[in-house]
Simulated scan of single mutants.
Amino acid sequence: MTNGLKIVLVLGSAPDAVLAKNWDLSVFTSRVAINNAWQITPDWDYLVYPEDFAVNRLPPEPLLPHQRLIAASEFVPQQNSFGGFVYAGGTMAFTTGYWVLGALKPDILAFLGCDMVYAQGAGASSHFYGQGTPDPLRADVTLQSLEAKSVRFLSFAHSQNCAVVNLSQLAESRLLFPRVSMAEFATQPLCQDILNRQSQLFDTEVVSRVLQAEQDLGYMVPSGRYWEREAEFDKSKLSDIDRLWLQTLQAA
């Protein structure tokens, strides 16, 4: 811990995730890799991966004593405790973030390589390992607005007194989290400053309204396999909820 803070890094697979190779990762209490991101650095503690992740892409056994694999049996209950996949957004950056909130309860949660923007054109790499599938951009009723889903996550994190930052150096991001540098983010004053700014971001009345709208719709799939029941979900009503989440920032 730094200054007594529990600081967690969530590491995705965007090309700039390789920045972590040159960082002193000891500043983080825990380092959480998503899918293939364990290949970037051996200094990971948790690897979160979905049911359809290829077994041959998992790290070789035996793992180091401090390393753990986090599969659906662990992250689905945590996700459900935050309202479920339909409202959170069915992609691993958000799923992993909510698992971290529930299981690790950080004071600061920092994302790298999770901007969900994808390079285009000849020779461009979408992921640090080359070309991959832009999963968050697939046609999915839960992913109509990645920005709205990031606002929702920020709201839930703030309700746990958790500061959320984005360490990315990319010009564009779908995550509406404050940007900080690796050199500055892990200080007590900055953490408190971010929490203060997060408080000012949200209109609490609108937050209460959108949470009630989610509850009223009742789109909960306890198994986590929401795609098996996707025909039951009203796309326009979910889009309305996305707009409300964005309004929680706009109204403040």
Score class of each variant (00 low, 15 high):
Met1Pro: 15
Thr2Asn: 14
Thr2Lys: 14
Lys6Asn: 15
Ile7Val: 15
Val10Asn: 06
Leu11Arg: 05
Leu11His: 00
Gly12His: 01
Ser13Asn: 15
Ala17Asn: 02
Ala17Val: 05
Leu19Asn: 11
Ala20Ile: 05
Trp23Pro: 01
Asp24Gly: 02
Leu25Arg: 07
Leu25Cys: 13
Leu25Pro: 02
Leu25His: 05
Leu25Ile: 12
Ser26Thr: 15
Val27Arg: 15
Phe28Ile: 14
Phe28Asn: 07
Arg31Asn: 08
Ile34Gln: 01
Asn36Trp: 07
Ala37Gln: 04
Thr41Pro: 02
Thr41Phe: 06
Thr41Lys: 02
Thr41His: 04
Pro42Lys: 11
Pro42Gln: 12
Asp43Glu: 15
Asp43Gln: 15
Trp44Met: 13
Pro50Ala: 08
Glu51Ser: 12
Phe53Leu: 10
Phe53Tyr: 14
Pro60Gln: 09
Pro62Ser: 05
Leu63Asn: 03
Pro65Asn: 09
Pro65Lys: 12
His66Asn: 11
Gln67Ile: 11
Gln67Arg: 11
Gln67Gly: 07
Phe75Met: 12
Val76Lys: 02
Val76Trp: 00
Gly83Asn: 08
Gly83Leu: 10
Gly84Phe: 00
Phe85Arg: 11
Val86Gly: 00
Tyr87Val: 08
Tyr87Gly: 06
Ala88Ile: 12
Thr91Gly: 00
Thr95Val: 13
Val100Cys: 12
Val100Ala: 05
Leu101Pro: 01
Leu101Glu: 02
Ala103Glu: 14
Ala103Asn: 13
Ala103Phe: 04
Leu104Met: 13
Leu104Arg: 08
Leu104Phe: 01
Lys105Leu: 04
Pro106Lys: 09
Leu109Pro: 02
Leu112Ile: 09
Met116Arg: 00
Ala119Pro: 07
Gln120Asp: 13
Gly121Val: 10
Gly121Pro: 02
Gly123Asp: 08
Gly123Phe: 05
Thr133Asp: 12
Pro134Val: 08
Pro134Asp: 02
Arg138Thr: 13
Ala139Cys: 03
Val141Pro: 00
Gln144Ser: 12
Ser145Val: 06
Leu146Val: 06
Lys149Cys: 02
Ser150Glu: 13
Val151Glu: 03
Arg152Pro: 03
Leu154Glu: 07
Leu154Gly: 06
Ser155Ala: 15
Phe156Ser: 09
His158Val: 00
Ser159Asn: 09
Ser159Ile: 04
Ala163Arg: 05
Ala163Thr: 06
Asn166Trp: 05
Ser168Gln: 10
Glu172Leu: 14
Leu176Cys: 10
Pro178Tyr: 03
Val180Leu: 15
Ala183Val: 04
Phe185Gly: 11
Gln188Ser: 15
Cys191Gln: 14
Leu195Glu: 04
Arg197Asn: 12
Ser199Gln: 15
Gln200Ala: 15
Phe202Val: 04
Glu205Leu: 14
Glu205His: 10
Val206Cys: 10
Val207Tyr: 01
Val210Cys: 06
Leu211Thr: 03
Ala213Ser: 11
Ala213Gly: 05
Ala213Asn: 00
Gln215Pro: 00
Asp216Thr: 11
Asp216Val: 08
Tyr219Ile: 01
Val221Gly: 01
Pro222Trp: 02
Pro222Ile: 10
Ser223Asn: 06
Gly224Arg: 00
Glu228Met: 06
Glu232Asn: 09
Phe233Met: 04
Asp234Cys: 07
Ser236Cys: 04
Ser236Gln: 14
Lys237Leu: 13
Lys237Ile: 05
Leu238Phe: 00
Asp240Tyr: 13
Ile241Leu: 13
Arg243Phe: 08
Arg243Ile: 01
Trp245Asp: 08
Leu249Ile: 13
Leu249Lys: 01
Gln250Trp: 02
Ala252Ser: 11
